[in-house]
Design a protein around this nucleic acid. Structure first.
Lengths: 205, 205
DNA sequence: GTCTATACCTAGATAGAC
DNA sequence: GTCTATCTAGGTATAGAC
């Protein structure tokens, strides 16, 4: 029974891993169950013994990848972040985002979630809640606690920071803007710091 | 002959209009030629007499909608824009974007272009060149000419402005963030002005 | 749970009459 | 250019043996 259980999980895992690859490459409608079965080295009917239908499988793999992306920081680390001066805080936020943006899987997830957001709004919501909001709340929380910055709307300011990053990823990397109008990510960060620094100086006067 | 020509154009136009609707709603793989034919009230073979294949039709409608979105301003208006103080310039840029973002077709175009960017990179490039870069160049040109702002990288600063807008559209409207963490577009603009204003003041000292 | 085999449908694309 | 009719391939999903 233990063996049966183990081999079952193994098959299911093969399917999930294959489905992640195929769905993220080709989107929902662009993916066939035949292709997933071939990639998983499994017969098609086996997939249907683990998942109700194609939508069920798709939802499962998007949830899988989405939750994988949400490695919440420890409370200690979050507290440490909040104690940093604005400059170093932006530095760390930047580092975290850059690691994320170098992952092909992350870019593919973003592409598919946006592309299928009309047909699968719940998955889009899940993505926003578990991935996007994490960064937003980190930055928003920081801006809220630093009253000395005199920001009228911390959430909106957090959005400007995180939004600049995400928009850079989309138009430079995903849409291929880097091929004819390159913009280094570091330069965006520097320009963002210029603005935030100015705000800090004004607030201190 | 004139009649034949007219009826021909009419049929082709029916097909294009129907294809725009169906492709923007369902993406490339999610769209069937049967569905397009039904929507255009035309038999499928008629489509193939105007377009080589499905890819050809898809490329045609994305180009159609993309170019429609690029209504370049007159040189006079652009010059007027460049003469405005930073505050009013951001106001106008904002207004232009808000009009854009209220169009369902524009949101659908953005969704599809991102979703299909892996399979159709040329179309993604076309979109960036004709739509995104227009706003970027406007803002970047403004920041370049206003040396008094002492911005080290006008392009990067322009990206922060435009990127904040696009990111707002994506995570609030397209991914449905507004349903559980609403953020008003106006508040983003206000926060952006806070930062730019601070930079202006610092530069004037 | 896993496989073989298959039912049933819709996809994209074309041939030929008009 | 437009339609009727049709081809072939591939799609999702299931029934039944093991």
């Amino acid at each position: 029974m233990a063996t049966s259980q183990r081999s079952t999980r193994s098959k299911k895992d093969q399917i999930v891993q294959a489905a992640i690859k195929v769905f993220l490459e080709n989107g929902y409608a662009g993916t066939s169950m035949n292709r997933v079965a071939a990639e998983a080295d499994v017969i098609k009917a086996t997939i249907y013994s683990h998942f109700k239908d194609k939508e069920d499988l798709f939802a499962a793999i998007i949830e899988e990848v989405t939750f994988k992306r949400m490695h919440a920081d420890t409370p200690e680390f979050e507290q440490y972040l909040q104690s940093l001066p604005p400059d170093e805080f932006v530095n760390l936020l930047t580092q975290k985002f850059k690691i994320l943006s170098q992952s092909e899987e992350y870019k593919a997830l973003l592409r598919v979630v946006i592309g299928e957001s009309e047909r699968f709004p719940e998955l889009a919501t899940l993505y926003v809640k578990t991935v996007i909001l994490k960064g937003m709340e980190l930055a928003s929380g920081y801006f809220s606690k630093h009253k000395d910055l005199k920001l009228n709307n911390p959430l909106a300011t957090a959005h400007i920071c995180c939004g600049s990053f995400v928009a850079w990823l989309i138009w430079q990397e995903i849409l291929g803007g880097k091929n004819f109008k390159p913009l280094e990510f570091e330069d965006v960060v520097i320009a963002l710091k210029e603005l935030v620094d100015a705000k800090v100086q004004i607030s201190q006067q």
